[in-house]
């Protein structure tokens, strides 16, 4: 089953075209990581798939055109973990997670026992149960990110879209977030699409990589197919050293200082 199919996406901000004839197909149950240099439209692509930006072209989510979803139906199918969550009016952790039930509630309906159960389960899943009564603005970055992910899980989506969820987290928390996503995919059969700048995490966790390049060209394939010195040097404009992780055999990417340009394996 196809979770996401996008055909001929175009999107411009004023004169600047960020997406040009972009085609994407994601199978249900995949863990897709979108990588690419800044400004190539990774976030714009993600937001377009979530219906938050109006790109021209065709988008189908689980076989149904995006335009035929109501906002609520879409939110019951697709959850988004944004780059930032404003904290001006701090809710508690439990209140925040419960908001994920919103697309499943009627206009004046209040959260019932079942909604609380689902929220609790989501909080347990991301290991934030003990933080339930704390306010969101009192948490560390890693805790906050796990709360936002719990909220997305609480939405009970079939597809989850994440925009750089590991940015500004320490290595242990990065791995924790990635592990959660892998478990979501495996245990709950949720399709995961994630934007990331971390090429090694992409290599370790992605079942497929989308490499966005300037001008809208996309390379798609397994980590081993996409994460090659030639592809990376062409996309990012800087040399990178690629070898294999000893245990998994996945591509391992090392950065090189710019002034030592020539590296034996950079192509």
């Amino acid at each position: 089953m196809i979770a996401v199919r996008a055909k001929g996406l175009n999107l411009s901000y004023g004169d600047h075209q960020v997406l040009r004839e972009v085609n994407v197909a994601v199978e249900a149950g995949e863990f897709v990581v979108i990588i690419g240099p800044n400004g190539t439209g990774k976030t714009s692509l993600l937001k377009s798939l979530a219906g938050l930006l109006k790109a021209s072209g065709e988008i189908e989510i689980f076989g149904r055109p995006l335009a035929r979803y109501s906002r609520r139906q879409l939110a019951a199918t697709v959850a988004v973990v944004p780059q930032q969550v404003p904290l001006a009016f701090p809710f508690t952790v439990l209140e925040t997670v419960l908001m994920g039930r919103s697309p499943h509630l009627g206009l004046l309906e209040v959260e019932g026992r079942e909604d609380y159960r689902i929220a609790r389960q989501a909080m347990e899943f991301t290991d934030v149960s003990h933080l339930g009564a704390r306010r969101l603005d009192e948490l560390s970055g890693g805790e906050r990110q796990r709360v936002i992910i719990a909220r997305a899980v609480c939405q009970e989506p079939k597809l989850i879209l994440l925009d750089e969820p590991t940015a500004s987290l320490d290595p242990a928390h990065q791995l924790r977030i990635m592990d959660l996503m892998e478990r979501l995919r495996r245990e709950r059969e949720i399709t995961v699409i994630m934007v990331s700048h971390d090429l090694n995490l992409a290599s370790l966790y992605g079942s497929r990589i989308l490499l966005l390049r300037d001008g809208g060209a996309i390379l798609a394939g397994s980590p081993a197919e996409i994460l090659t010195p030639a592809n990376l040097a062409q996309a990012y404009g800087c040399p990178m050293h690629v070898d294999r992780y000893p245990l998994t055999g996945a591509p391992r990417i090392s950065l090189l200082p710019l002034n030592q340009s020539a590296s034996p394996s950079s192509g």
């Binding site: 938050l52 994920g100 509630l105």
Partner: peptide
């Protein structure tokens, strides 16, 4: 009063509110 719950989600920003099903 009918829009009280959507108002909660608006506090998270327009885009986040939209992503959680609010028109």
């Amino acid at each position: 009063y009918f829009l009280a719950r959507p108002m909660n989600l608006l506090l998270l920003g327009r885009e986040n509110a939209a992503a959680m099903g609010i028109d």
